Simulated scan of single mutants.
Amino acid sequence: MSHAYSPVPELNMLKEFEERLGRACYSQAVELREFGVVPGIKTWTADPEFVAGFLGFADATLSGSTYALWRVDDRADLSTLPVVVFGDEGGIFIVAHNIRELLRLFGCDREIHVWDDCAGFVEDDEDEQGDEASPDHVEYLAWLDQQFGLAPPSDPNELVQAADEELGAQLASWMGRFVEDV
């Protein structure tokens, strides 16, 4: 029997990294949580198809937003599924094309903000965390490069916008089957 954190190799590697550090202080507000669970998802709708459509895996903000994989289709490689953020005060938005793209976003060491109509990352001077780096951020950047050959984007919002432009309308259409006023 496997004791892996998830069926997603990249997330298992991130979990091992977190455990090696002994804490999750490598990127603002990010911490892995129980795989597959999206807290509060049934406040949107209890429809089993909707609930099964998302696989939660990490806290996105200190106030309760959550990152989840969106089961856009039945592909076997879950790491290639789009990533959404469930806002703590509402809103579900596409933030990355896949897990590796999200890992790059974590490299920016910024907390995502979820508004009524979009999600994105604000500059450090606009953010209440200030410009102090997360304690283990340098270790995360080295891990990201060593494990995947990846680096953070110069502008995280360009990645978020590209993913949203490609998949946002599809997500809204899919959600419209279950939730009014999407």
Results as ranks from 00 to 15, higher is better:
residue 162 A to K: 10
residue 176 G to P: 11
residue 41 I to Q: 01
residue 65 S to Q: 05
residue 65 S to W: 05
residue 53 G to M: 00
residue 138 V to N: 04
residue 10 E to G: 03
residue 109 D to C: 04
residue 153 P to N: 11
residue 14 L to K: 00
residue 27 S to A: 13
residue 177 R to V: 08
residue 2 S to K: 09
residue 80 T to K: 13
residue 112 I to A: 05
residue 136 D to E: 11
residue 13 M to A: 15
residue 133 A to S: 09
residue 32 L to R: 00
residue 169 A to P: 02
residue 97 H to C: 04
residue 100 R to V: 04
residue 69 L to N: 08
residue 66 T to I: 14
residue 49 E to M: 03
residue 48 P to C: 07
residue 120 G to E: 14
residue 145 D to I: 00
residue 114 V to H: 05
residue 138 V to S: 12
residue 151 A to F: 10
residue 21 L to V: 02
residue 101 E to D: 05
residue 159 L to V: 03
residue 117 D to I: 09
residue 179 V to Q: 10
residue 111 E to L: 05
residue 69 L to Q: 10
residue 3 H to Y: 11
residue 41 I to E: 01
residue 69 L to S: 08
residue 25 C to H: 10
residue 71 R to W: 04
residue 87 G to W: 11
residue 87 G to T: 10
residue 13 M to H: 09
residue 37 V to L: 12
residue 152 P to A: 15
residue 128 E to H: 11
residue 149 G to T: 03
residue 132 E to L: 12
residue 84 V to Y: 11
residue 97 H to A: 14
residue 51 V to L: 06
residue 174 W to E: 02
residue 168 G to R: 04
residue 63 S to W: 10
residue 165 E to Q: 15
residue 166 E to M: 09
residue 50 F to A: 01
residue 33 R to F: 08
residue 92 I to E: 04
residue 61 T to G: 08
residue 74 D to R: 07
residue 182 V to C: 13
residue 96 A to V: 12
residue 147 Q to A: 15
residue 82 P to H: 10
residue 7 P to V: 12
residue 99 I to L: 15
residue 7 P to D: 14
residue 130 G to S: 07
residue 107 G to E: 02
residue 20 R to W: 02
residue 181 D to L: 10
residue 15 K to A: 04
residue 39 P to A: 07
residue 74 D to F: 03
residue 159 L to G: 06
residue 126 E to W: 06
residue 180 E to G: 11
residue 158 E to R: 10
residue 66 T to A: 04
residue 89 E to F: 07
residue 115 W to M: 08
residue 138 V to R: 12
residue 114 V to S: 06
residue 122 V to D: 14
residue 160 V to E: 12
residue 68 A to H: 10
residue 172 A to W: 01
residue 179 V to I: 15
residue 32 L to T: 00
residue 21 L to A: 02
residue 162 A to R: 12
residue 182 V to R: 05
residue 86 F to L: 12
residue 178 F to C: 12
residue 116 D to H: 07
residue 139 E to H: 03
residue 54 F to N: 00
residue 44 W to P: 06
residue 22 G to K: 04
residue 126 E to M: 08
residue 26 Y to F: 14
